[in-house]
């Protein structure tokens, strides 16, 4: 690969990671004024804020690499669902509190492993973003683990809701560990993460937490994939039509 190719690939990679962060942050921000109690409302907003911040850092870097005048907002507000490349698990509706916390648990364990690798990226900017994000994720994971224990080992109802949530999410977790050609190239170049290699550690940690929470790992009986190629669930279109509505209604102005 030429330097130019590598630069382009890194730009696309930064957009992908920005998409993951923005869409999950959006879902978390939907909890504002809707959490089970006030302290939890603030905590969820905190996590949402971390993800929005993460999206801005990745998009900001993507904008810098494209060097064509685009800004972070162009990536967030002026692309359609087919151009978004977030993994599908992030766009699923927030569901009930069990669903939200189960998704956080599965993605927090993933993120902690992923960021630990991205920290070692030969790309200094990506490594820098990963360093900041890794700190946040440690706090996120502590929270989602605690919630998994409380809900899994709480009441019959909370247990049943957690079982259902994990079941509904499981088929979307496989995609977390798949690389396409672009990601493989970047992993080979020491820039990106070889996420396929993370699955054993992820499964081990997730299993341990679920077991402690009196829950179990579901069978691998179904798989949905497609986020990285823009093959999304119907949910993403609704997120974008809401998120982009004001920005697109007044093209070209400042906010």
């Amino acid at each position: 690969m030429t330097d130019q190719d590598l630069r382009q690939a890194t730009q696309a990679y930064a957009v992908r990671l920005g998409d993951d962060a923005l869409i999950l942050g959006h879902r978390l921000s939907e909890w504002t004024s809707r959490a089970p109690f006030l302290e939890e409302d603030l905590a969820l907003q905190n996590v949402a804020l971390d993800y929005i911040g993460r999206a801005r850092m990745f998009y900001g870097y993507a904008a810098e690499l494209s060097a064509d005048g685009r800004t972070e907002d162009d990536f967030a507000y002026l692309r359609d669902a087919r151009q978004f490349s977030n993994l599908l698990i992030h766009e699923l509706p927030r569901g009930d509190f069990a669903f939200t916390m189960a998704r956080q648990l599965l993605t927090d364990v993933f993120s902690s492993l992923y960021l630990e690798q991205l920290l070692r990226s030969t790309d200094a900017t990506l490594a820098g973003i990963a360093a900041k994000a890794a700190k946040e994720t440690r706090y996120h994971l502590r929270r989602s683990r605690e919630w998994a224990l409380r809900l899994g080992d709480g009441t019959d109802e909370s247990h049943a809701r957690m079982v259902r949530a994990i079941d509904e999410l499981w088929g979307y977790t496989h995609e977390l560990f798949e690389l396409d050609a672009l990601e493989q190239q970047l992993a080979d170049a020491g820039i990106g993460v070889d996420n396929a290699a993370l699955r054993p550690a992820w499964l081990k940690q997730v299993s341990a937490i679920l077991t402690e929470a009196t829950l179990r790992v579901p069978e691998d009986s179904w798989v949905v994939r497609g986020g990285r190629t823009g093959y999304h669930t119907e949910n993403l279109g609704h997120i974008l039509s809401e998120m982009q509505s004001v920005h697109r209604a007044y093209p070209g102005v400042s906010w």
Binding site: S29, L42, D73, M243, W255
Partner: peptide, 22 residues
């Protein structure tokens, strides 16, 4: 929050609303 017209505004608004809760 979900419709803020720029990412910067979104982040500021989110943190503002969080302060109100605090």
């Amino acid at each position: 929050i979900t419709r803020a017209p720029s990412l910067r505004r979104k982040a500021i608004l989110l943190s503002k609303v969080q302060d109100e809760g605090g």
